[in-house]
Simulated assay, not measured.
Amino acid sequence: MKTYIKQVFLFLSICLSIGYSVVAQITYPIVDTGVTVFYSNNAVISVPNSGDEFYGQDATYTGNQPSYTDNGDGTITDNVTGLMWEKDMGEKMTFEASFSKAQHSNLGGYSDWRVPTIKELYSLILFTGQIKGAKSNTLFIDTKYFNQTLGNTKIGEREIDAQTWSSTKYVGVTMKGDETVFGVNFVDGRIKGYPTQKKRTRTENTMYFRMVRGNTDYGKNNFIDNGDGTISDYATGLMWQKADDGVARDWETAINYSEDLELANHTDWRLPNAKELQSIVDYSRSPQTTNSPAINPIFSTTEIKDPNGNSGQYPFFWTSTTHLDGVNPSSGAVYIAFGEGQGKMRNQLMDVHGAGCQRSDPKSGNKNQYPTYFGPQGDVRYVFNYVRSVRNIKF
């Protein structure tokens, strides 16, 4: 009995010193995706009610709505995250040059500019954007506040060749040994790893770059294992399902699974949107370097075999967010790869995008026909992906 009482007091002291003191201020608020339209597997639909098909997708739930202030000095303040951004990215530059620019910048009278982490940079993405192959339709960033350049088609670039550097290096390598840095493409709405050097010319790769300052805690999680199959992140105010259930599902079934989930006496679980799920990626981990998925080991993740039958791969996880791309823009949804972002090039399966990349899969299909391969990097398409449900912590 004495041991039990000591354990109770220890638990309460931990809650008071770690949990409740931190919950008073969420340091990593997730900005909503901006999605207000509802989709089926292949079309725009009217607003579904609870219990209807496709209830529980991104637009069902409203988070921290995007809110910006133009400071009139070339800077934009994000009123949700507390981050201040450079409005205009300027010309493309190398990865190393971006750090030099930030170090020497006095934009807006501030000298503490930095290259954003991938989580800081992804806070700006909006999934109200739309793309059709290599051609932009609507950008995945608020163009009322941010200047976003397209690729220069006059020199042979595609419109989507306007990727933005982050400061987050991939801890593994992509392709055949490329040193890789994660970036966000606000033209096509994706995260992937980009090589720092062009192999053909042996010159440094150049991309766009947007400086940031303020809220140095942004992107840093504060996980607590609740001991009941759930993990709380007091930095974001979100509670997560600790372990996926090891079942691969199509998109609609994934939504339904989360809506029906009862766990730890909570029934308000849902499928996370793209930005919520990306918030729990751990970019210091990968199958190549830590023999683990790109997520804090406080979580449990099912190990799967890759399309070649090799073990040591981890699933793509569905989000509730539709990714508007292609001839039928309603037919795909966003996933986050917690294992390698594999593709098949020259008939060789390899990590082409990096663990922690964000891509999209068709929402439905015949399970017996997958995996398949798609696009210039031969992206693996599983279609039947995994689920880690989320809910909001009620403070």
Rank of each mutant, 00 (worst) to 15 (best):
T128A: 07
P297G: 03
G34P: 15
P371F: 04
S136K: 04
Q130N: 11
Y314D: 12
E259S: 10
F223D: 02
L349Q: 07
F146K: 03
T289P: 09
P329Q: 05
F338E: 02
K119Q: 15
R190T: 14
I125M: 13
F395W: 13
Y373I: 07
A235H: 11
R359S: 10
V212L: 13
G246K: 05
L349N: 05
D88Y: 11
Q103R: 09
G356V: 08
R285N: 13
T69K: 08
N366G: 04
L126G: 13
N41H: 11
S111I: 07
E159Q: 14
L139H: 11
N328R: 01
T236D: 08
D32I: 00
P195S: 13
V247Q: 12
S279W: 08
D73F: 03
V187K: 09
H104C: 01
T321G: 12
R200F: 09
L126W: 03
A254N: 04
T301G: 00
H353A: 09
T206V: 13
G82F: 11
L12V: 13
S40C: 04
R249M: 10
F140K: 03
I118L: 15
D282S: 05
P315H: 06
M345T: 12
T128R: 08
I45S: 06
S136C: 02
Q377F: 12
Q369T: 00
R202A: 09
P315Y: 05
V173W: 05
V44I: 15
M89F: 05
Q358I: 06
N215G: 08
H104T: 14
S300N: 11
G354E: 14
T206S: 12
P376L: 06
D244K: 00
D178E: 13
E262H: 08
G183A: 09
T27K: 13
M207T: 00
D78T: 01
V212A: 13
T143M: 04
L16P: 06
K119A: 15
Y39K: 01
K394R: 12
V281C: 11
E340W: 06
V247C: 03
E157A: 02
S100T: 14
V37C: 02
D58V: 05
E259W: 07
M93K: 08
